[in-house]
C-alpha cells in the first residue's frame, strides 16, 4: 500500500527535481532561457490563461459583457437543452465522418494512382494540391456560385439537355450540410493525397520486391503489405482532418452562413453567434469549452504518443 502511494507521487517528485535543476541553470546560464521566455509567456497567456478564462466565463451568467458571478453548471445544462446545439453536434458528426471518410478515401486512391509511374506526375500533383493554399472564404465564395441552382452547375447540366437535373443542395435544408462536405473534401483531398503519397514512397522498396518474387499479385501486395503499413499515415490524416472539422468556421460562413435556417450549424458557428450576435457569452463559452474538450480528446493521446516515442 505504502509503496503504491509513493509510486504515484513519483511524477511530482520528478517535476520538483526538474524545477530545482531549472532554477539552478537559470542562474548559471540565463541567456537561452531568456530568449525563449517571450514566446513561452505569450503562449502561457494566450493559450492556457485564456482557456481558463473561458472556462471561468462558462460558469457565470455573462451575457453581452463578462460578469464574474458563480452560476455553477447552469450554462452547460442550458447548452445541452438547446435544439440548436444538438443540430450543431449532429451536423459535426455527419460532417466529420463524411468529410474525413471521403477525403481519406479519395486521397488514398489518388495517391495510389499517382504512384503508378505516371508520366505527368510533376504536373498533376500541384493541381491536386492548390486548393489547400486558398482561404476557406475564397473557396466558399467560389463554390457558392458554382452550387447556385439558378446559375451554376445545375443550369449547365440542364443546358446540356438533362432538363430534370437538380443540384440544389445549398438551398435545401436537408442537403446543405452535404454541400459543405463536398467543398471541404474538394479543399483537403490534395493534402491527404500528398500525405499518402509520401507514405507510399517511404515504404522500403525491397519489401515490395520480396513480395513480387514470392508471386504476390499487385492487389494482394497493396492489401496485405502496403496498406497495413500506411496506418500511421492514415492516423495522422484523420487527426488533422478531425481537428480541421472541429475548428471549421470560415467555410460554413462563406458558403451557407450556417443556413438555410440552422441546417449547417456547426459548433464553431454556434459558439460565434451565441457569443457575439446573440449576446449569450456564458453559453458561448460553455460551447467553446465543449469544443476544446473534444479536440483534447482527439489530439491529446496522439500528441502524447508522438512525444513519448520521440523521446525514446
Amino acid at each position: 500500500m505504502r509503496n503504491s502511494r509513493l509510486l504515484s507521487l513519483k511524477p511530482f517528485v520528478l517535476l520538483g527535481r526538474d524545477i530545482k535543476a531549472f532554477l539552478l541553470r537559470a542562474r548559471q546560464h540565463p541567456t537561452p532561457i531568456l530568449v525563449i521566455l517571450p514566446s513561452f509567456l505569450l503562449t502561457i497567456i494566450f493559450v492556457y490563461f485564456f482557456i481558463l478564462w473561458t472556462l471561468t466565463l462558462s460558469f457565470t451568467t455573462s451575457t453581452l459583457i463578462p460578469q464574474y458571478n458563480w452560476a455553477g453548471w447552469k450554462q452547460y445544462f442550458i447548452l445541452w437543452s438547446l435544439p440548436n446545439w444538438y443540430k450543431a453536434i449532429s451536423n459535426l458528426g455527419i460532417f466529420g465522418v463524411l468529410y474525413i471518410g471521403f477525403s481519406c478515401g479519395i486521397g488514398l486512391l489518388l495517391a495510389i494512382l499517382l504512384d503508378q509511374r505516371i508520366r505527368f506526375e510533376g504536373f498533376i500533383r500541384p493541381i491536386l494540391l492548390y486548393p489547400m493554399s486558398l482561404s476557406f472564404i475564397v473557396t466558399g465564395t467560389a463554390w457558392k456560385w458554382l452550387l447556385n441552382p439558378g446559375l451554376g452547375i445545375e443550369r449547365v447540366v440542364r443546358n446540356w439537355g438533362w432538363e430534370s437535373f437538380t443540384f440544389n443542395w445549398i438551398i435545401d435544408p436537408d442537403r446543405a450540410i452535404y454541400a459543405v462536405i463536398l467543398v471541404g473534401v474538394w479543399q483537403s483531398t490534395g493534402f491527404v493525397m500528398t500525405l499518402f503519397l509520401a507514405g507510399l514512397r517511404g515504404i522500403d522498396s525491397d519489401i515490395i520486391k520480396a513480395a513480387l518474387l514470392e508471386g504476390a499479385s499487385i492487389y494482394k501486395i497493396y492489401l496485405r503489405i502496403i496498406l497495413p503499413q500506411l496506418r500511421y499515415t492514415l492516423l495522422s490524416a484523420v487527426i488533422i482532418l478531425a481537428h480541421l472539422a472541429i475548428k471549421s468556421y470560415d467555410l460554413v460562413i462563406a458558403l451557407t452562413g450556417g443556413g438555410p435556417g440552422n441546417a449547417t450549424e456547426l459548433p464553431a458557428t454556434f459558439m460565434y453567434s451565441y457569443t457575439f450576435t446573440r449576446s449569450k457569452m456564458a453559453i458561448g463559452s460553455a460551447s467553446a469549452i465543449m469544443m476544446f474538450m473534444t479536440v483534447v480528446a482527439v489530439i491529446g493521446p496522439y500528441l502524447y504518443n508522438e512525444f513519448r516515442t520521440k523521446k525514446q
Binding site: 482557456i51 473561458t54 472541429i246 475548428k247 464553431a268 460565434y272 463559452s285 467553446a288 469544443m291 476544446f292
Partner: peptide, 8 residues
C-alpha cells in the same frame, strides 16, 4: 480550437 480563446 480558437473558439476556446476568442472571448478572452
Amino acid at each position: 480550437p480558437f473558439q476556446a480563446i476568442l472571448i478572452p
